[in-house]
Amino acid sequence: MKYWLVKSEPFKYSWEKFNQDGRTFWDGVRNYQARNNLRDMKEGDLVLFYHSNEGKEVVGIAKIVKESYQDPTTTEPNWLVVELSPVEALKTPVTLATIKGDERLKDIGLIRQGRLSVISLKPEEFDRILELGN
C-alpha cells in the first residue's frame, strides 16, 4: 500500500462536499509530476485530503477506489484522474503550521514541494499526521 496527499481549495471542492458526494474523480491535474503520482495510485491506497489556500490543513482520509484513467474533462491524452471515496474525517484538522513545526515531518513533500497538488507520502509521514489529528 502507498500513501498520498491531495489538495483542494475548499471553495472549489471541500471535504464536506466530498462526503456528500460519497465518491469523486480527481480531475484538473495539469502538472506532470502530480499526474505521475495519480498514475502510481492503486486501488486501496490511502489519501490525506488537504484544504489548500483556505484553512491549509489536513481534514480527512480517503481511499483510491478506481485506478487512473483518461481525464474526462479534456481530450488531451496526457492527463489522468483517479476515483476516491471518503473514509473518515480527522478528529482535529492538522494545520500546515503544525506540520512545519513537527521535526518528524520536516522532509514531507507538502513543505518541500508546496505547489504540487498530488504528493506521495512515506508511511511514517502518513502515520504521524494521523497521530496529530486523532
Score class of each variant (00 low, 15 high):
58 V>R: 07
20 Q>A: 07
51 H>K: 10
13 Y>V: 10
4 W>N: 11
45 D>M: 09
99 I>V: 13
10 P>K: 03
29 V>W: 04
85 S>N: 09
90 L>M: 05
79 W>I: 07
23 R>P: 01
39 R>Y: 13
28 G>T: 08
130 L>P: 02
50 Y>T: 12
83 E>L: 05
65 V>L: 04
70 Q>A: 14
51 H>W: 06
57 E>K: 15
8 S>C: 11
126 F>N: 01
34 A>D: 08
95 T>P: 06
82 V>H: 08
39 R>I: 11
123 P>E: 14
22 G>R: 03
36 N>K: 10
39 R>W: 11
129 I>A: 04
41 M>F: 10
4 W>G: 03
123 P>C: 09
80 L>E: 05
102 D>N: 15
120 S>A: 12
59 V>Y: 08
51 H>Y: 02
103 E>T: 09
56 K>R: 15
97 A>C: 00
106 K>I: 00
33 Q>D: 02
111 I>R: 04
104 R>L: 03
116 L>E: 01
102 D>S: 02
27 D>A: 15
127 D>E: 15
121 L>M: 12
87 V>Y: 02
110 L>T: 02
90 L>P: 03
21 D>G: 02
119 I>P: 03
121 L>Y: 05
35 R>I: 14
31 N>S: 05
21 D>C: 07
71 D>F: 10
44 G>R: 10
44 G>D: 10
42 K>N: 15
118 V>N: 03
4 W>M: 12
110 L>W: 02
26 W>H: 04
76 E>S: 13
57 E>Y: 01
74 T>W: 10
10 P>S: 09
18 F>H: 07
29 V>H: 07
7 K>M: 12
81 V>P: 00
32 Y>P: 04
21 D>R: 09
10 P>R: 08
28 G>E: 08
11 F>H: 12
124 E>Q: 14
91 K>R: 14
95 T>V: 11
35 R>L: 13
82 V>K: 08
18 F>Q: 00
94 V>Q: 08
68 S>A: 15
55 G>Y: 04
88 E>C: 12
31 N>M: 07
12 K>N: 13
39 R>E: 14
